[in-house]
Amino acid sequence: MAMRDIRVTGDPVLRTVCDPITEIDDRVRTLVEGLLETVDHEGRAGLAANQIGVGLRAFSWNIDGEVGYILNPEIVERSSDLQELGDEGCLSVPGLWYPCERPSYSKAVGTDLDGAEVVIEGEEIWARLINHEVDHLDGKLYLDRLARDVRKRAMRELRESLEG
């Protein structure tokens, strides 16, 4: 399978809540293959299914040399304390990075293609990844989480980038 095209801001699939995966079939296997192939490139930390046009609850990651995936992830734990504002970016909002608050720790539980439990958890980049990708599956972009003044600037810069 080849690397899949990334859907960008403005595509309605990015604003649609993804459906749970209820059956592991060839479509889901192909989705996982596409997620893993597409995320396994330098500069890519995570990729949600809807970012490649599939409205199912799955995402992949590529952090510190570890590439993996999770089906039907649910965030089961997150800290109430926030990590210091760090710039966040998104493959679906190319070239634009803004400070976005995220929990300093998060834990998600889901399954793999064989139905075995998958647990991903961590601080800093792992916490950011988990929340960012689950937001995608819920039809949200990180731009929705920006402070009001930053969001206003981000939307202006996004419009300018799409026009140019």
Results as ranks from 00 to 15, higher is better:
Met1Leu: 11
Met3Ser: 12
Met3Ile: 14
Arg4Gly: 02
Arg7Trp: 01
Val8Cys: 08
Thr16Phe: 00
Val17Tyr: 10
Pro20Asp: 14
Ile24Ser: 01
Asp25Gln: 03
His41Arg: 15
Arg44Val: 14
Leu47Glu: 05
Ala48Glu: 06
Ala49Asp: 02
Leu56Pro: 00
Ala58Phe: 13
Asn62Lys: 06
Ile63Gly: 03
Asp64Trp: 02
Gly65Pro: 07
Glu66Ile: 09
Val67Trp: 03
Gly68Arg: 07
Tyr69Ile: 10
Pro73Phe: 11
Ile75Asp: 02
Glu77Ala: 14
Glu77Ile: 00
Glu77Ser: 12
Arg78Val: 00
Ser79Tyr: 06
Asp81Cys: 02
Asp87Ser: 10
Leu91Val: 02
Trp97Pro: 00
Cys100Lys: 10
Pro103Gln: 12
Ser104Asp: 14
Ser106Val: 00
Ser106Glu: 08
Ala108Cys: 10
Thr111Leu: 09
Val118Thr: 05
Val118Phe: 08
Glu124Asn: 13
Trp126Glu: 03
Glu133Gly: 02
Val134Asn: 01
Asp138Phe: 02
Asp138Gln: 12
Asp138Cys: 05
Asp138Trp: 04
Lys140Val: 02
Tyr142Pro: 04
Asp144Trp: 10
Arg145Val: 00
Ala147Ile: 01
Ala154Ser: 06
Met155Leu: 15
Arg156Tyr: 13
Arg159His: 12
Glu160Ser: 09
